[in-house]
Design a protein around this nucleic acid. Structure first.
Lengths: 194, 194
DNA sequence: TGTACATCAGTGAACGCGCGTTCACTGATGTAC
DNA sequence: TGTACATCAGTGAACGCGCGTTCACTGATGTAC
């Protein structure tokens, strides 16, 4: 057993983190395996020791958001999520729709950065994206000011949050971008009665 | 003057329409100039008689939505938009968030199909995307049940409509997809007081 | 009305380039003795 | 404790392929006579 098992696992993790950042910044097809491996301090050939193909890395990269900025979602869920208070959800929404998140191209939520890339990707990638959405909706369902808010409210809230950030990110005009972000935030907080 | 001026204009239009459909279906970088020209019944070389480069075609394709399905937006605006009644806006929202629109990969709104592609494209493309959004927000601002609805409401409504469709399109799970779409629709109509 | 001609929309071979993936290899490492 | 060895993570040249773009050309067309 040359090299410890930990060594390989750490390399793998480094590749995923590098990929997550590059994908967020430039999109799936725009980032080559060469680029990812190079920025992870490796060479292209080694990639296939860790992943069967590029597509498998997509899914891992999307899912890995919950280890980065997405950790806040776990905090918002709390130890006993059914009884967590609404404060943490308000914090989570304010963070999600913050100008800081809008500017964080590297660390942003993949639901914002990669919607159309994901829609065209494999089932595995779409599954990872769906998991993120489910996590967000779950938070809205279980931790609003009015507990047990209807599911409809939680779903449309997710649409407003993600949609607001997607539009703010895509629009060329900076002033309009800020307008959308703050409007979506205000509307989301109102809906939750926060 | 061989070939009429109309002849060239029609060819150009055919290229744009073909590109719009292919981009909507598969994304910007996934569709080659070769494919577009081939499906338009032409050969690759001729492309540069009509456009300086691929990027210029992007912008035209996004903008051309208002000639297809987006024509409904003009109808919703009405002859004298300030006095148009709210019915047409309700129709427009119901059409935008319909399962038929969700299934219409070719004709769908580019704000749904191409958000992350656009975010990474040139200023011209982003400008065309921004124009579509402005058109939608304008409709919500001027034609709601409560006339002169605040701008904030119109903006967050756009976030809900576009975001709802983006999520419904991206998510792998069909049942969840339908849930999101109908939740966003219900919430949008409620917000407008329709 | 018929024909010769100039125009330019459209053609298709060719360019340099970067892609995802394969594969024979190398050399750093933990283990057995 | 020191050394020989087997393992396998990582290397880098090579593959076939499709991309965006260029360019010398061709041939369908409207016009002038």
């Amino acid at each position: 057993m040359p090299y410890s098992a930990i060594h390989k696992a750490e390399t793998r993790k480094r590749i995923i983190e590098t990929a997550r950042i590059l994908f967020n910044r430039e999109g799936f097809s725009e980032v080559s395996i060469d680029r990812i491996m190079d920025e992870a301090g490796l060479t292209r050939g080694g990639f296939y020791n860790h992943f069967p193909n590029k597509d498998a890395l997509y899914a891992e990269a999307v899912a890995s958001f919950l280890n980065g900025r997405g950790k806040a979602w776990r905090d918002a869920a709390g130890v006993d999520p059914q009884n967590a208070d609404a404060t943490s959800v308000r914090d989570m929404i304010e963070s999600y729709l913050s100008s800081e998140h809008l500017g964080d191209l590297d660390g942003q939520c993949p639901m914002i950065a990669l919607p159309s890339d994901t829609a065209r990707a494999s089932d595995k990638v779409r599954g990872a994206y769906t998991d993120l959405l489910r996590a967000m909706v779950w938070l809205f369902e279980h931790n609003g000011a009015d507990k047990g808010a209807q599911r409809q409210k939680a779903l449309s809230l997710a649409a407003t949050c993600v949609g607001g950030m997607v539009l703010a990110r895509t629009v060329g005009d900076t002033a309009l971008s800020e307008e959308i972000r703050t409007a979506a935030r205000a509307s989301a907080l109102e809906t939750l009665g926060l």
